[in-house]
Design a binder for these strands. Structure first.
Lengths: 341, 341
DNA sequence: TTGTAGGCGTTATCAT
DNA sequence: ATGATAACGCCTACAA
C-alpha cells in the first residue's frame, strides 16, 4: 500500500498516454496551448504512476537549479549569534520550499569564499543568501565580482546598492540607548561583537548618536568591541566594573555576550538595574530566562530569513525588486533589567 | 583580478588540450590509465581556465547527486529541542562537505513524509538523515518502504535493524536518576516531551528502571509527558507542586522544558535543590545561565550529526557499515541544582 | 494543438 | 593510452 513505484521517465508517460514527450512536458509546464482532453489524460497517468521529473535532467536542460545556497557559519566566535542563525534558516527554508526551490547548505570550509565559489562554479544553485556582513566583506566582494545573484541579510555601507534586508540597527540602538537614558542613567557603556561586523558598527553608531544628542560624552573606556561570545561579555563587564568611574548602564550587541556580562555582575553581587541597567539585542530565550530578565530589542530573525528568500527568488525570476536595503520592524521589550529604577 | 571566468565545458577544455572529452573526463576522475604527460597538461588548462564540471550534467550521467537530504523540523512543540538541531546540523554539514557531498535541507511542508517523498522522487539526493524518531514513525516507515538509503539520529524499537546513531538514553536516564537518589531524594518526578517520541520513551524507561532497582514505587502522578516546550515544563511543575505528596526531585527530558519548570519553582519561591532537586538533558547554555545552574546530561549533538553523516556516506559508497544502533558517549555534569544538599 | 529533432554537459561503453 | 559515440531525462525551437 502506498508504495513508491518504479521511477518513470517522461518518455514512458508519453507512450502510455499515446502522445509525444513534448506534449507531456508542456502539460506539466502548464502550457495553455494544449487541449483539455489530453491535458487531463496526461495528468491522470502522471498521478497513477506517481511520475515526477528528474531534477538533474531538468536542471541541465533549463540551465537552472531551482536551489539557493547558504553557507553555514563557522565557530562560536563567528560573526553573529547562534539564535539568529537558526531562526533565519527556518524562515528561509519555509519560504523557499513554498516556491518550489531547495536550500543547499554548505559548511564554509576551508573558507567561506571557497565554499561560495564551489557553489557557483559547479552550478549547484541559482542564487545565494549571505548572512550578516563585515566591513570589507570578502564574501560580498566575491559575489559582486562574479555578478552572481545574491541577497544579504544585514546591511553594508561600502559596496553601493545591493539587495539586502535588515532591521535598522542604527535606529534601534539609538532607541535602546534612549530607553536607558530615560530611566535616569547617564554613564552608559557599550559591549560589541566582532570588530568590523556591520551589526556592531551600526549599533555602536546608533549608541553614539543618542549620547551626543543628549549632550553626553562618548567615552572610549566605556566601549568594548571584540567578539560574539559569552566570555567576551564577561571580560568586558569585568573591565567596566573596575573602572574608577563606573558606568551605570550597558548595551550589549547580542544576547550571548549579555549573559556573560550578567554572570560577572552576579559574581560581584551588583544590583541590576540599580547599579547597572542592562539591555541587549536578540529577544532570545536567554533574555527571558535570565534573572533579572533582560530588556531587549526584538529582531525577527525568522522574517529576516523569509523576506530575504522572497527577495532572492523574485530577483531570480526577474521581477522588479528595489535595490538597496529593506528594513523590517523592531521593537523594544522592557524587562526587569531596566525597569523599576 | 581573481575574476570568475566564463564557465567552460569539458568539450572546450578538451579542444584546448587537443584531446578528446573522454580523456579529460578520465583525468578528472583520477583514472590511472592515462599518460602523466597529458594528465598534467589537462590539469594545467583546467587550472588556468578555472573549469569545474557542471553538476546537473554529471548527476544525470552518473545517476547520483552527491547530496544528502534532511528535513527541517516544524514548530517549537516539535519532536525535539532546538539546541539539538542546530548542533547536529553543524556536524552534518562539516562532515558531508569534507566528503564532497552537499546538504539539501527542506522544510517539512505540508508534512514531513511529503517533503521526504519529494526529495526522493525528484532524485535530488542520494540518501537522507532523519532526526529523532517517534513510536510508529511515519518517516521511518516511508523510508523502509521505499528502500531509500537513510540513517537515523536516534533510536527505534519497532522496525528491526536500521542504521542509526544515538546516545544511550535508557542508560543515561538511569544514571541521572541515580545521581539524584544518591543525594538523598526519594520522590523523584519525570517531565517528558512529546508522547511517543523515542527520546522520551527511552529516558522514561531508564528512570523507571532505576527507581525499581532502588525498590521505589513508580508513581503515575509523578510523570508528565506532553510536549517539548517551556510551557509544558511550567505547567507540569505546577501540577507536581500542588500534589498532596510533593516530589523532592525531578528529571526533565529537555533543557527548554526544564527552564519552564524552574520558572514555576522560582515563582513559588521553592528552594532548588533543597525543596526540589532538578536535572535535565542537553547541556545547553540555558542550563549554564540558569540560577541555580542545572545539572545535565551532555549530549554531543555535533558528534551525533557528524557520525550520522559519516555513516550515511559509507552506506552510499557501499562500505561495510554495521546495521543497528551505534551509541556515543554521554556524561553527567553536576551543577548547583543537585549539589550541596 | 501536437510531433520531431537537436541540444544541455557529463559519463561510460566499445573500439582502436 | 586515447577517441567516437551513445546514453542520461528533459526542454524547446521549428515544423506540421
Amino acid at each position: 500500500m502506498n508504495n513508491i513505484p518504479k521511477k518513470m521517465t517522461i518518455k514512458e508517460i508519453a507512450e502510455i498516454a499515446g502522445v509525444s514527450k513534448s506534449t507531456v512536458s508542456r502539460a506539466i509546464d502548464g502550457n495553455p496551448r494544449i487541449s483539455e482532453e489530453t491535458r487531463s489524460k496526461i495528468f491522470d497517468i502522471i498521478q497513477k504512476y506517481g511520475y515526477t521529473p528528474n531534477t538533474a535532467a531538468r536542471n541541465l536542460a533549463r540551465n537552472k537549479t531551482n536551489a539557493i545556497g547558504i553557507v553555514m557559519p563557522h565557530g562560536e566566535s563567528g560573526i553573529y549569534a547562534a539564535t539568529f542563525f537558526q531562526e533565519a534558516l527556518k524562515g528561509i527554508c519555509n519560504t523557499v520550499s513554498n516556491n518550489n526551490y531547495d536550500v543547499l547548505i554548505t559548511a564554509g570550509n576551508p573558507t567561506e569564499p571557497e565554499a561560495i565559489k564551489r557553489l557557483i562554479s559547479t552550478s549547484r544553485v541559482d542564487g545565494i543568501i549571505l548572512l550578516r556582513s563585515k566591513l570589507r566583506d570578502t564574501n560580498i566582494e566575491l559575489m559582486l565580482r562574479t555578478g552572481f545573484p545574491f541577497v544579504l541579510i544585514g546591511s553594508c555601507k561600502e559596496y553601493g546598492n545591493i539587495y539586502s534586508i535588515d532591521n535598522d540597527n542604527i535606529s534601534a540602538a539609538s532607541a535602546l540607548t534612549e530607553h536607558i537614558l530615560q530611566r535616569g542613567k547617564r554613564k552608559i557603556a557599550f559591549i560589541g561583537g566582532v570588530e568590523g561586523s556591520i551589526v556592531t558598527v551600526n549599533r555602536l553608531e546608533g549608541y553614539k548618536n543618542k549620547l551626543t544628542e543628549y549632550g553626553l560624552p562618548v567615552r572610549d573606556e566605556y566601549i568594548y568591541v571584540h567578539e560574539f561570545s559569552e566570555k567576551h561579555g564577561y571580560e568586558s563587564m569585568k573591565k567596566l566594573m573596575s573602572l574608577p568611574d563606573r558606568p551605570d548602564g550597558v548595551i550589549t550587541v547580542d544576547d550571548t555576550m549579555c549573559m556573560g556580562a550578567m554572570k560577572y555582575l552576579e559574581e560581584i553581587n551588583a544590583c541590576v538595574p540599580g547599579d547597572m541597567a542592562v539591555a541587549c539585542f536578540n529577544d532570545s530565550a536567554y533574555t527571558r530566562f535570565s534573572r533579572p530578565s533582560i530588556t531587549t530589542v526584538t529582531v525577527d530573525s525568522y522574517q529576516l530569513g523569509s523576506s530575504a528568500a522572497e527577495m532572492l527568488i523574485d530577483v531570480l525570476n526577474n521581477k522588479r525588486v528595489d535595490l538597496g536595503c529593506r528594513y523590517i520592524d523592531y521593537k523594544i521589550l522592557e524587562r526587569e533589567s531596566t525597569s523599576g529604577i
